[in-house]
Nucleic acid binder design. Sequence first.
RNA 1: GUCCCCAUCGUCUAGUCUGGCCAAGGACACCGCCCUUUCACGGCGGCGACCGGGGUUCAAAUCCCCGUGGGGACGCCA
Length: 470
Amino acid sequence: MPEIVTRFAPSPTGYLHIGGARTALFNRLFARRNGGKFLLRVEDTDRERSTPEAVKAILEGMTWLGITWDEGPYFQTERMELYLKEAGRLVAEGKAYRCVCTPGELEVRRKAAREKGEKPHYDRRCRDLPPGDTEGKPSVVRFRAPLSGTTSVHDLLRGDVVYENGELDDLVLLRTDGSPTYNFVVVVDDATMGITHVLRGDDHLNNTPRQILLYEALGYPLPSFGHFPLIHGKEGGKLSKRQDDVSVTAYRDRGFLPEAMINYLVRLGWGHGDQEIFSVEELQGIFSLESVGKSPSRFDPEKLQNVNAHYIKTGDPQRLSALLVPFLARRGIEAESSPWLAKVVRTFQERSKTLEEMAESAEYYFRRKDPDPKSAEKFLTPETAPLFEEIARELGGLPDFTPAAMEPVFQRAAEKRGAKLGKVAQPVRVALTGGTVSPGIFEVMDVLGRDEVVERLTAAAGRIRERSAG
RNA sequence: GUCCCCAUCGUCUAGUCUGGCCAAGGACACCGCCCUUUCACGGCGGCGACCGGGGUUCAAAUCCCCGUGGGGACGCCA
């Protein structure tokens, strides 16, 4: 069996978006699963809209997700000679012709056709013009497509889809400026790069019969095709920049983990029994096209969050601490990855859905915060001043400043006052963190360290006395 | 409008190919209860779907047809 070769072929007109990322992922998974190669090709024939920044952004997104490629990136702008040569061949063989219709004329005719309720395609009026008539005039090269018969696409996911050739169009192969168009270069590239499986979004299904005709005209062997259902946004319909966050790196910047993104993406349109959590390694062993669904799926940020929470919960604290650093920096906190920061992370792993959220809730570990007024009013009452002083004193005398050693201190303080532990813990929490929500109070103290705890408690007691005196 | 694709809880899906094990399973979200020093985590429970209609069959979520709905494509974009 010949080696399987798949590809991802984005056009560099923006960021790597969710849909593209999933297409890339499926392509790579499929190649890996079958011991084949996955390559990356940048479709930049549209010079107007392609930018180097977009190329960079796409590669960055891919790299972040860990979707590595075995070959490339190839750039179509570097392969122009090939396309021109192949187009010339088609013209020479009479399989393509020059058309002198202008974009304006075509636009008018399309509109008219649509109004008449017809499919608005090219009326082929230049198809049989004598060669002399096009000489010296600006012209495009069009494919001479068959007028009758049918073309069927043997789609790996959908089965055979049959098109009337009459429905298809005489595609433009080369523009007036001589540059080649998508439907043409994609065929030349996929064929010459030895792509065996063209797996892409459903929006290309209708292009496939035209491309098949080109394969045949050019004498190329046909690859297998497979079209994935699209990913829809909140409002249904394909993801839009307006209403949905479509850029992969935007999720990175909001504190999502790449493995969570991958895991979420792979489950969108693909399933493996009841399993929800998959590692990439595992996916490479079990991914199959047969279990890719046929209907579009809606992108659900809440489920993504849930998956992300899972990976944060189970992730290595040391690694997470390194990833957390930029999020802290954004809040003006300079920190570096360290065993201590890993300890900070540990206290939040079970309560953070994103790294951004973690950085936000971790602020009080780095700076003393004024207590939130509501919490202060409720918990920093006059009788807590002696409590804080008592606890500070006892903690100061502890041989080991460990959670196990701290607990009896709090138990005693509670018992002495005939109260439950919460009566003591909650005011201390406010004194230490400025609010009523935090990890376990002993964990917090453990991270803060004895000196800081004692200082914060003493300071809080001082403020309370001051206030009740004044 | 024309062509093409699709159709199970609000969402992601299992089940559909190979009809019976499905009075339809799991996950997210939501709601309750439990655990508990707060918030979470976790545990338990609840809510909640086979788009409609015809057929085929002893039997249909599963096969067929027709509707309906949703989506995509109709470019000198990709």
